[in-house]
Design a binder for these strands. Structure first.
Lengths: 340, 340
DNA sequence: CTGAAAGCGCTTACAG
DNA sequence: CTGAAAGCGCTTACAG
């Protein structure tokens, strides 16, 4: 293996100077830089990251923490994030956690064990960030939730405007003629920091503004972000409230389960029950019927998140909190209710 | 941060002995071991992996290479593999590659750059392994393809018996009454080492044994492992051969695209065209109609692959090549052809 | 069974 | 602008 020593010998400079060239230290003569870079090129030299990290007392890996299994939406972002990071030459570690696990606690643990140089959270519960994030001292980015209100010094966040999107979904269903609308997904709305809470807030606003009654008891059912969760919750919801004509599943994965449940109850989508999802995963464009949904801009989320992290990793750059645009896709799964 | 030095001081032994305890070296007195382990416990000491790896000249990360994007089947395995590895305290890096990329070349690159201590390949082209794998000297496991015939000294493999499963799929369709069967997916069958080739082999055997004509020109269409690939290929296939009454998509993701394409051509599944997939992803149980498919045992694949790797990483353990059982799931997407 | 010591490949004050 | 040297935290012959 070629080491910095070889490069030093070959270039005629000391390893100190070679190290400076590698790390873009400005205190190197143009001449030395040229020569050393040429040798590095020619030898195809890669600095040993273990040695580097040992000195710098940190690991080279950026860790991506994904909340929830079988979450196709997050997996789409994950793939993008990983690809961009890889192209930037960064090492990427990935951890999948249960959607109810404490991701900040987990990150904290990793910090003492492996000292990653940064984190990207795919999904996150603000409550956990409020409690424990202060002890994390590496740059972090939260995707699909906003941490603006927390004012943490090393946490950026990028998200869809969930409140607005939730509002538009309900408005859309109301305009289609629905009055008895069910909502599925997320934990009980009291838990103010889970994904889905802001979506729910937007929904409530839309109900109020349109004077449509909404009763959490009869029109809401919590669900995990999974097909099975959606399946079971939908059955419970429609059993306890048979008047419902439209269902808003706050994740496409949930919506898939919902559509299957409706079908298994002998009803049809959208003729008997309309369904609208959230996320805009690829599958929403292929299922039968095509799913109405809120399409989140996976690409922008991934790109902005990574750019932000890289910037803050390498320079002193302020944290950012930004909404990325979304799009309500009409699909084929929403129709006017039967009676209208 | 507590280091091995602190533990040495606190326990009254030298750092050498502490290191031996950490690494389960048998040449340590019971007394020393007890005392040192107690101090490690009490201080919650984690050895610095960078220092360790620097000495041992390898990185601590096990790298998982996933071939193909939006491959829900691989993502299911990935999540399992990652979780098991994490519970074993291993660091896990992940790389998603295009399904046609050269994964061995990529692994080779990583070997010089980061020196991972092992690889798990999710999907792999045997051709690439044949060409370049010899230069990889860390333990590797290939999942969903068999490398038995390659006789590589550090490559185990676990897979479904694709040939047999392919055989059973065609047999099943024939028993259902189909004579004009289309196959979608994989590269041209000449490329003998891609996923899908062995599935195809099984299909051909079944056709022959049952004296059903099969013509690659008119009954086959290649496709990427993606919904869009499946969608487009199915349209091409059914246009060039309208007599087809059943389609075998060699991946569920492809099958999803196929079902959508059939629908968009004004036909119904399974009334007009039967569809059967491969993989048994979760979604196959939720789509409408439920997808007939070959259910691969994700869990066994993940578990056996990881166990094998860990064993070979920590002890001298021989490579293994094993088939895991599969199951043909009938679903709702296959029916007798119209004319029968 | 144990300790002292060399060394893994790098970075970074320090001195010049 | 450059080099010599210390040191990051660990492992592992070596000697005893």
């Amino acid at each position: 293996m070629t080491t910095i020593k070889d490069i030093a010998k070959l270039s005629g400079y000391s390893i100190g100077t070679v190290s400076r060239v590698i790390n873009h230290n400005p205190d190197v003569s143009e001449e030395a830089r040229m020569k050393i870079e040429q040798v590095i090129q020619q030898e195809n030299f890669q600095p040993n990251s273990n040695a580097k990290q040992l000195k710098q007392q940190s690991s080279s890996a950026i860790t991506i923490i994904v909340k929830g299994y079988e979450n196709m939406f997050f997996e789409g972002i994950l793939e993008r994030v990983q690809a961009i990071l890889r192209d930037s030459g960064e090492e990427v570690a990935v951890a999948f956690l249960d959607e109810y696990a404490n991701e900040v606690q987990y990150a904290l643990q990793l910090c003492t064990a492996k000292k990653p140089k940064g984190f990207i959270f795919l999904g996150g519960n603000l409550e956990f960030f409020k409690q424990d994030f202060a002890r994390i001292d590496v740059p972090c980015v939260l995707l699909t939730n906003t941490a603006e209100s927390l004012h943490l010094p090393n946490l950026s966040s990028y998200t869809t405007d969930d409140r607005l999107a939730g509002y538009q979904v309900i408005e859309y269903l109301i305009k289609a003629g629905h009055r008895e609308i069910g909502i599925i997904g997320g934990s009980a709305s009291k838990v103010g920091s889970q994904v889905g809470f802001r979506r729910m807030q937007g929904c409530l606003e839309a109900f109020q503004e349109n004077h449509i009654p909404y009763n959490e008891e009869t029109n809401y059912e919590p669900s995990r972000f999974s097909m099975q969760g959606g399946y079971e919750s939908t059955q419970r919801l429609l059993k306890k409230n048979p008047k419902i004509t439209a269902v808003f599943a706050i994740g496409d994965t949930i919506a898939i389960g919902a559509m299957r449940a409706i079908r298994d109850m002998g009803l049809r989508v959208p003729e008997d029950i309309s369904v609208i999802g959230y996320d805009g995963i690829e599958y929403s464009r292929y299922c039968v019927p095509r799913l109405a949904t809120v399409h989140q801009d996976t690409d922008a989320l991934a790109r902005k998140g990574v750019e932000d992290l890289l910037l803050r990793l390498n320079y002193s750059h302020p944290v950012t909190h930004e909404d990325v645009p979304f799009q309500l896709v009409e699909g084929e799964s929403v129709a006017a209710p039967r009676d209208h």
